[in-house]
Nucleic acid binder design. Structure first.
Length: 295
DNA sequence: GGCCAGGCGCGTA
DNA sequence: TACGCGCATGGC
């Protein structure tokens, strides 16, 4: 097979932070490169000074599918300018320069986040890889590359039994994924039209699916639906908000959700991703010290 | 070996 | 409305 190559000129784009920030689960670092699957295509990416270099199995029509996935046309500076001007956001932006949101395919995003509950990111990656290997289609890859599979279709997972899915190490999530796949396959929710709905309507559609609560619904709205004000509140964000915004009060979850809706502006979802990645990469908080900072 | 993980659903009060 | 709990599995 032959490879098609392209370079996307980008500004203010940190590919590694973006692919490793727990929004998508199909990317594997291979030295300076990243190998993954977007839709039904194997892809290899590498960031250089002149932009993001991409390789994919030829032939392909154009690269719009990858440009869309990577959101290379988004002007990050304009988004960052809408963030609240406070110390936690300044620290997060400084620590995660160039972090972006991807635009993912709704079904893969939904299914992946149904698998995510009460799991660490590395484990989610394993579950998604296992599901793809068992139920996805093998994809053409260049010589020497690891084999790759597409993410399983709704129909394929709807046809699997709960017992089969449990064998894929889904645990108690197996019935959720199974039932949700069957509902989507039956047309009870049209994922392709989600992005056209008002936010609340789209969220309500997702919440009607088994295994989908507010957090997972907001992940799908943000990562696949393009609702940039959606703000998933997970354990890391709870920790971020409590440590960085309310260090002494320990507000409860409903209060934190309310704060998140009012404080972060029209690109709250972006702000959320910065807080999330910042908390996950900055290391543990400094232990309390009676003397205070030494400066 | 215990703790925790990009939660959800259900049973109580 | 607001808690507390169990769920299945694996990384650290």
């Amino acid at each position: 097979m032959t490879l098609a190559r392209a370079t996307f000129a980008v500004e203010n784009y940190d590919l590694a932070a973006t692919l490793a920030s727990g929004q998508a689960f199909r990317w594997r670092r291979a030295g300076a490169q990243w190998e993954g699957v977007v839709g039904s295509r194997w892809v290899r990416l590498r960031q250089e000074n002149d932009g993001i270099h991409a390789e994919a199995a030829a032939p392909l029509g154009d690269w719009q599918w990858l440009r869309h996935y990577l959101q290379t046309e988004v002007v990050l500076r304009q988004i960052l300018a809408t963030f609240p001007d406070d110390a936690p956001m300044r620290a997060s932006v400084a620590a995660c320069r160039g972090l972006r949101l991807l635009r993912q395919e709704p079904w893969e995003c939904l299914a992946s986040f149904i698998c995510s509950s009460n799991k660490q990111i590395v484990q989610i990656q394993q579950m998604v890889a296992l599901l793809s290997r068992r139920y996805g289609e093998p994809l053409p890859v260049p010589p020497g590359a690891d084999p790759a599979w597409s993410f399983p279709t709704v129909q394929r997972l709807a046809a699997a039994s709960q017992a089969e899915l449990r064998e894929s190490k889904l645990g108690f999530r197996a019935p959720f994924l199974c039932q949700t796949a069957r509902k989507v396959a039956a047309g009870e929710v049209d994922l392709a039209r989600l992005a056209e709905m008002p936010l609340e309507e789209a969220r309500a559609c997702l919440l009607a699916l088994p295994g989908v609560g507010i957090k997972i619904a907001d992940c799908v709205l943000l990562f696949a639906g393009g609702f940039q004000e959606a703000f998933p509140v997970d354990v890391w964000i709870i920790k971020a908000l409590r440590e960085l915004y309310f260090p002494r009060r320990r507000p409860k979850l409903p209060r934190l959700r309310q704060f998140s809706r009012s404080h972060f502006g029209p690109y709250a979802g972006y702000a959320q991703q910065y807080l999330f990645h910042y908390m996950r990469t900055k290391g543990p908080a400094a232990p309390p010290s009676k003397a205070g900072p030494a400066f």
